[in-house]
Design a binder for these strands. Structure first.
Lengths: 342, 342
DNA sequence: TTGAAAGCGCTACCAA
DNA sequence: TTGGTAGCGCTTTCAA
């Protein structure tokens, strides 16, 4: 069936509208585009609008983009899709973009293909700018981004240089989590840290120490173990920590918290009677773990919307100033934390 | 800074390449496009290719699309991003599309906005066709899809009418799961069903009955409860089922399995010593539950790639025939299933 | 084998 | 207030 390959319908063009309204294309264009200074008689305007509506006219974005060299589309690049953090950042970016008349093109990059992905996004799909979300460890990013010569805003990551970025205040979040634990009487609080050397990992670690400080608890480095961002990492780190007999654990992510909980269960320790567990970031999976995990919410959706707004404003010639780290949201107290055993 | 709004770089156009190579644009176009019948002298060809490479020429997809009325881009529409099933379907679709020279535009739709989303995708972003993934319950889909007048392929859903669709054989998967349970000696097997009236839910239910049949176990409708696709649904359904004293549970999804496990824990029942639990679909979260959940893998990535291939082939004027339901993958035996208590 | 030229649908400048 | 028109960068038909 050749039919299927044909354009879906006899598209209505601007010329059709102009003809039907008895005006010139340029006039129709002015009206339909909603040009700022509407130097068009109201009567004419209405007629054109009506005709366009009747004909169900829709501008061809390809033609428009070719002419104006703008697509009014921004792209968002995330390391992985099935991660509630990024999913919600996408949601936020989409909402903000739509409000500003832009649409959002979602893309993810398989590890190791960042350069290609950026190039494809900006060249094949024609975006006016890019939102780039990142895990801690992509150093490649930098060169790829400048090579693509496309305006961008970073999410959850800072890069030396002038680029705008929007980050979460994970230091404050970690501090908050520790405060919850110390308020419950815990003093032997372990930390399952993120990837060594990573920016966010360091932030969380600092927050952990802040929290200890706040409660006048001495920092003991034997209570900290690197878990990274996987369940296996959580398992390994927790196993290593077991002999230190912590009464509470602050995990850098939900995933590592899950790994830690597995170890705790297997060691015959009760949660939270023997050991309390708290994780950073909130997502449905927190409620699916057993016992349900206490977490600190992070404003990931807001991160997306702020980043999109920043990008679009700079696309429009403004030079928005840098934004501060986004403060953590509420602490969601579920079943995994309780009073320190005595 | 106005600078940021300017086009990122002085783009190299086809005319530039042609001029530098001392040929006409049309000749350069023929070569660069890799036209089938390369009626161009080899020497000329090489020269053009070299110049294009030196200049780092990249065709402007907007101009090309305007001229050819094709974007070589297909869109994929999913109900939610942070769902491993859809995330992996996207991966599959992306791979297959890339292989066939297409790029994939990812989009998700907030509930209730399907029509708008489809319209925007096909009109604003110009896709040649759409891959539409769906939960059981979107009946709206149908009208929205035909209103958009865009070629499409359905995933995980059948719609009366001629549209192509690719589905998973969840009936076979459920049967497989039950077989695992009966082989372990279980006879009182409960089923946490999907949304009532849904296509997939019915398939899984049939598979459950098939499995019972295979083992010569009589079907007892009191052992079936509708859980839908949420953890809360799993909780409710499992609570209702408790009094029936099942020794095993087949949950329609990982999420409802998680809810069920929570209930079991709270009821003081051990998994798997007292009750075995198995879920359909495999994803990292299965390993994060406690105990780690036994699952049946589903070829979701393949679903994506098959769907993309089907769509692109029909875009190219073929009329591919319908494909059979994709058979389930392996059963992943983790810690949540064990011999029936005696 | 190569070149000339029309035109995809739109915007934006200039003239009326 | 409105219309004419050039041209964005490319493909494609036709002619040389």
């Amino acid at each position: 069936m050749k039919a299927k390959a044909a354009p879906p319908s006899p598209r209505v063009t601007l010329a059709d509208v102009a003809r039907a309204a008895g005006v010139d294309m340029s006039t129709a264009s002015r009206v339909l585009r909603g040009e700022a200074t509407q130097r068009v008689r109201e009567e004419t305007r209405d007629r054109i609008l009506k005709v366009a509506d009747d004909l169900q006219y829709l501008a061809n974005p390809l033609a428009r983009g070719l002419r104006t060299a703008r697509t009014y589309t921004i792209g968002i690049l995330v390391p992985q899709l099935d991660n509630p953090v990024f999913a919600s950042a996408i949601r936020g970016a989409e909402l903000a973009a739509a409000q500003l008349g832009y649409s959002l093109l979602i893309s993810h990059r398989e590890p190791g293909t960042t350069g290609t992905t950026i190039a494809k996004l900006s060249q094949t799909n024609r975006v006016d700018g890019l939102l780039v979300a990142s895990l801690d460890d992509d150093e490649v990013l930098r060169t790829d981004l400048i090579a693509a010569r496309v305006p961008y805003v970073l999410m959850n990551r800072v890069l030396p240089g002038a680029a705008l970025s929007v980050i979460l205040d994970s230091r404050a979040a970690a501090r908050l989590a520790v405060a919850h634990l110390t308020a419950l009487g815990h003093t032997r609080i372990a930390h399952l840290a993120g990837r060594e050397g990573g920016f966010n990992a360091r932030q969380r670690f600092e927050g952990y120490r802040d929290g200890l400080n706040d409660a006048g608890i001495a920092y003991d480095k034997r209570l900290v173990s690197v878990a990274g961002y996987t369940a296996e990492g959580g398992v390994m780190a927790m196993q290593a920590l077991l002999r230190q007999r912590p009464t509470a654990v602050l995990a850098a992510t939900l995933v590592s918290a899950a790994g830690a909980m597995t170890v705790l269960h297997e060691a015959g320790l009760r949660i939270p009677e023997d050991v309390s567990v708290i994780g950073l970031h909130d997502a449905p999976v927190a409620g699916m773990l057993y016992p349900a995990l206490t977490t600190v919410m992070m404003p990931t959706e807001e991160m997306g919307s702020v980043a999109a707004t920043l990008l679009i404003r700079s696309l429009n010639g403004e030079s928005p100033e840098a934004v501060l780290p986004l403060p953590p949201g509420a602490l969601i107290s579920r079943a995994s934390t309780g009073p320190a055993p005595r």
